[in-house]
Amino acid sequence: MKGTNLGEFEELVLLTIAALMEEAYSVSICDEIERITERKIKLGVVHSVLNRLEKKGYVQSHLGEATKVRGGRRKRFFTVTHAGKATLHKVKEQRDQLWNLIPEFTMKLV
């Protein structure tokens, strides 16, 4: 079921891309996740996840304009596809359903 399943980190990356909108490329995604989760994120991991997401059809990529930084290399920008958005919604729905099943007091103990 590789095609449909969304791993935890994949979900995180997908959400970040959606949040960053036009500015989502590997390094900025990496930075953003680091900022939110306060975890050390490796570029390599992000890279392979992006590659996987693209294969699954959740994101699309295009090369941007060449700039003077990065040794003159272009950035590869990512956008979430329709399928990606649908999957994100589905995941959120599933989570919300589960949240609704939990009685309020259980959580208060945390």
């Binding site: 570029l43 930084v69 990065r70 290399r73 272009r74 950035k75």
Partner: peptide, 15 residues
């Protein structure tokens, strides 16, 4: 296909 942006990313981290 992957080379250019990867090179760019690595360059950015290098900087």
């Amino acid at each position: 296909g992957v080379l250019e942006d990867l090179q760019g990313d690595l360059h950015e981290f290098f900087d």
